[in-house]
């Protein structure tokens, strides 16, 4: 039986008595690549924040690497890239190198250099984070997430501010990490076409789980045809050949 990286049972989360997530249950096994998709306001980011303990659910349980979230301490096993930093102060006096290394031992300097080069921001290492463009800031945060070489990577709309070239590099890198290193990936995105190309499983949520399964099943789902419309679903499913994955 494969070890669950994430196991969620009957999770319900309310904000001001309004139900944002209702009876969510799913598991992410070690080495999985799960894409979480859904419309705006469907609770995708809220789900991620519950998984990470930033928000506390009213009901249900969350287990990370076989441990209850309350008991979980191995946070270095998880890398998280938020949709946007909650309140990035433009005058924050942290250099890119300082922020990328945040919480990580300095002995990994060569890895730091390599990862900054990989993200195309090697020349910005000593610049202040607030001086960078939004796209460069996002790349710096990506570098931070990847630097710790975690077992589980959680991304919340990671490529919103990236140009197509950097976005493709990002997806390729993540795919390689998943395939070659066995890193578990959970990625929230609106980019259904692209996530379909890479993710092994999809979770479609809109306050509750609408669809859970492989990309192949997603393409064959009548419910999804109803939701997206036949043309859109066809475009998503055949733009990138899913048979390559399986």
């Amino acid at each position: 039986m494969p070890l669950n990286s994430i196991r969620i049972d009957d999770l319900t989360f309310c904000y001001n008595r309004l139900e944002i997530l209702s009876d969510i249950s799913f598991t992410v096994n070690k080495g999985d690549y799960l894409g979480i998709v859904g419309p705006n306001g469907s609770g995708k980011s809220t789900l991620i924040k519950n998984i990470l303990g930033i928000l506390k659910p009213q009901k249900g349980s969350i287990n990370l690497f076989g441990q209850s979230l309350n008991m979980f301490r191995d946070w270095n096993k998880i890398g998280y890239l938020p949709q946007r930093l909650s309140a990035l102060n433009a005058h924050f006096p942290g250099t890119v190198a300082e922020i990328v290394q945040m919480g990580i031992s300095k002995s990994q300097f060569q890895i730091l250099k390599n990862i900054l080069e990989l993200m195309g921001i090697g020349h910005l290492a000593n610049r202040l984070i607030g001086e960078l463009s939004y796209g460069e800031q996002q790349r710096a945060m990506l570098a931070h997430t990847l630097l710790g070489q975690p077992d589980l990577l959680i991304f919340d709309e990671p490529t919103t501010a990236l140009d197509p070239e950097t976005r493709d590099i990002f997806y390729t890198q993540i795919d390689e990490l998943n395939r070659h290193n066995g890193t578990t990936i959970v990625l929230v995105t609106h980019d259904t076409g692209l996530i379909g190309k890479y993710a092994r499983n999809l979770l479609y949520i809109d306050k509750k789980i609408i669809f859970s399964g492989t990309f192949k099943d997603f393409c064959a789902s009548a419910d999804m045809t109803g939701f997206f419309g036949a043309i859109s679903q066809h475009t998503i499913c055949h733009q990138h050949d899913p048979s390559v994955r399986n």
């Binding site: 924040k49 990470l52 303990g53 930033i54 301490r73 191995d74 946070w75 270095n76 998880i78 998280y80 938020p82 930093l85 909650s86 309140a87 990035l88 924050f92 942290g94 300082e98 922020i99 945040m102 919480g103």
Partner: peptide
């Protein structure tokens, strides 16, 4: 220092780093 730096940069992110 590392915890304070992360917390000052972004409290939510710091939480997910185990701070």
């Amino acid at each position: 220092y590392n915890d304070l730096f992360a917390l000052t940069f972004d409290e939510e992110l710091a939480k997910t780093m185990g701070v």
